[in-house]
């Protein structure tokens, strides 16, 4: 993930954060998952990626927006 930060590719980074969120959810760490989802969501929003909407919905479901 630091590598993706370094190459400054928001789209890649967003996907990586979402993956990290998925993994945290699997291990029942909701706090961590929501942190990662937020990161993924903001980057997707910045990049204008359509799936920002689904990330937003996931965060809303968790009461995080």
């Amino acid at each position: 993930m630091l590598a993706a930060h370094a190459v400054d590719d928001g789209a890649v980074l967003s996907v990586l954060y979402e993956r990290a969120a998925d993994l945290s959810e699997l291990s029942d760490d909701t706090e961590r998952a929501c942190f990662y989802l937020t990161q993924a969501y903001i980057l997707a929003l910045e990049m204008g990626l359509p799936y920002a909407d689904s990330l937003e919905k996931r965060l809303r479901r968790q009461g995080r927006i």
Binding site: E31, F35, L59
Partner: peptide
């Protein structure tokens, strides 16, 4: 992002 604490965006 995180305006209401980590992972909390409102």
């Amino acid at each position: 992002p995180h305006v209401g604490g980590p992972g909390q965006n409102s």
